[in-house]
Amino acid sequence: EIHIRTNGEEQARKVYKMLAKRNYDVKIEQHNGQWVVTAS
């Protein structure tokens, strides 16, 4: 499982799309105001 911390919604969405293209199961979560993308 991969966790990627991003500094904002826009970046989180870019990372989300990139990983989704590679057939990862991707989730975006917010932790303490930080956007974290989780891929498995």
Rank of each mutant, 00 (worst) to 15 (best):
E9Y: 15
A39N: 03
H3W: 13
N7L: 10
G33T: 04
H31A: 08
V15Q: 02
L19V: 01
T6Y: 10
S40M: 10
A20Y: 07
D25P: 05
K21T: 08
E9L: 15
M18W: 15
N23D: 06
T6S: 05
V36N: 03
E9N: 03
R5T: 11
V37Y: 01
K27H: 08
N32D: 10
Q34E: 10
V15A: 05
Y24R: 06
K14A: 10
M18R: 06
N7G: 07
G33S: 05
V15W: 15
V15F: 11
I28H: 00
Q34L: 10
K14E: 08
V36G: 03
H31G: 04
R5G: 03
I2H: 05
T6A: 09
E1L: 14
Q30N: 12
Y24W: 12
M18Y: 14
A20S: 09
K27F: 06
S40Y: 11
G8E: 12
Q30F: 14
V37G: 00
S40R: 13
S40P: 05
V36P: 00
I28T: 02
T38L: 09
E29I: 11
K27N: 05
K17M: 13
H31S: 09
K21L: 12
V26E: 00
E29K: 08
I28D: 00
R22P: 01
I28F: 03
M18K: 06
Q11K: 06
I28V: 06
E1W: 15
E10A: 13
A12Y: 01
E10S: 11
V36S: 06
Q34I: 14
K14D: 05
A39Y: 14
H31Y: 12
Q11H: 11
R22V: 05
Y24E: 03
I4P: 01
E9Q: 07
E29L: 09
Y24M: 09
Q11R: 07
R22A: 10
E29N: 08
G33F: 04
V15S: 02
H31P: 02
N7H: 09
V15K: 03
Q34G: 08
N7V: 08
A12I: 02
Y16S: 07
A39L: 14
I4T: 02
K21E: 12
S40G: 06
T38N: 03
V26G: 02
R5L: 12
V15G: 00
K21H: 08
I28C: 14
I2Q: 02
A12E: 00
H3Y: 14
I2N: 02
N23I: 04
V15P: 00
I28L: 07
M18E: 08
V37A: 01
R5F: 14
A20P: 00
A20Q: 13
K27L: 05
I4D: 01
A12M: 03
V26N: 00
S40V: 11
T6H: 04
V37E: 00
W35L: 01
Q11V: 08
I28N: 01
E10V: 10
R13V: 06
E29D: 06
R5Q: 07
E1Q: 13
K17L: 12
T6D: 02
R5D: 03
N23K: 08
T38W: 09
E1D: 09
L19N: 00
E1V: 15
N32R: 06
R13N: 06
R22Y: 12
L19T: 00
I4W: 08
Y24K: 06
H3N: 08
V15Y: 11
R22S: 06
N32I: 03
R22Q: 09
E10W: 12
G8Q: 11
Q34N: 07
H31Q: 11
A20H: 06
K21W: 08
N7S: 11
Y16R: 05
I28Y: 03
M18F: 14
Q30E: 10
I4E: 02
E1S: 12
Q30V: 13
Y16F: 11
A39D: 02
K17G: 06
I2T: 04
E10M: 11
N7K: 09
Q11M: 11
E29M: 11
A20E: 07
A20G: 04
I2V: 07
Q11G: 05
A39K: 04
K14S: 06
K17T: 11
K27V: 07
S40L: 09
V36D: 03
D25K: 14
K14W: 14
K21V: 08
I4F: 13
K17Q: 12
E10F: 09
M18D: 05
V26W: 02
A12R: 01
G33R: 04
V26M: 02
K17R: 12
R5A: 07
K27D: 03
M18V: 07
D25Q: 13
K14M: 10
N23P: 03
T6F: 15
N23Y: 15
I28R: 01
A12N: 00
I4A: 02
S40H: 09
D25R: 13
A39M: 11
R5N: 05
H31F: 12
E29G: 07
H3I: 15
E9G: 04
R13M: 09
R5E: 06
Q11D: 08
E9K: 09
K27E: 04
H31N: 09
M18T: 05
Q34F: 15
K17E: 14
T38A: 04
Y16H: 05
E1A: 12
M18P: 01
K14R: 13
K17Y: 11
E9D: 03
R22D: 05
N23V: 04
G8T: 15
N7D: 10
D25Y: 12
W35Y: 04
G33W: 03
K27A: 06
I4V: 07
N7M: 08
I2L: 08
A39S: 05
G33M: 04
G8I: 13
K14I: 10
Q34V: 14
M18N: 05
T6G: 03
K21A: 14
K17W: 13
W35I: 01
A12W: 03
V26R: 02
M18I: 10
T38M: 08
Y16L: 07
Q11A: 10
R5K: 09
Y16E: 04
D25F: 13
N23F: 15
V26L: 04
V36F: 12
W35A: 01
E1G: 10
H3E: 11
W35H: 01
T6Q: 03
E29V: 11
R13H: 06
Q11F: 12
R13K: 11
Q30S: 08
A20M: 13
K14N: 06
E29S: 11
H3D: 03
E10Q: 10
D25W: 10
V15L: 14
T6V: 15
D25I: 14
A12T: 02
T6K: 03
E9M: 09
A39T: 07
A12H: 01
Q30R: 10
N32M: 08
I4N: 01
L19A: 01
Y24A: 05
Q11W: 12
V36M: 08
N32Y: 06
H3C: 15
K14T: 06
Y24V: 06
E9V: 09
K17H: 10
M18C: 15
T6W: 04
Q34Y: 15
E29Q: 10
R5P: 05
Y24H: 05
W35T: 01
D25V: 14
V36Y: 13
N23L: 09
A12V: 01
T6R: 05
D25E: 11
K21P: 01
D25S: 11
R13A: 05
H3P: 02
E10D: 09
G8K: 12
K21M: 13
V36W: 14
R5M: 11
V26F: 02
G8M: 10
H31R: 11
A20R: 13
Y16K: 05
R5H: 11
A12G: 02
K21Q: 12
R13W: 14
L19H: 01
N23S: 07
Q30G: 05
K14V: 07
E9I: 14
I28K: 01
Q11E: 12
Q30Y: 14
N23M: 10
T6N: 03
M18G: 04
T38K: 09
M18L: 10
A20D: 03
E9W: 14
E9H: 07
W35R: 00
V37N: 01
H31T: 09
N7P: 06
K27M: 06
L19W: 05
Y24P: 04
V36E: 04
S40T: 12
H3M: 13
A12L: 02
R22M: 14
I4K: 01
A12D: 01
L19M: 06
R13Y: 10
V26Y: 01
K14H: 07
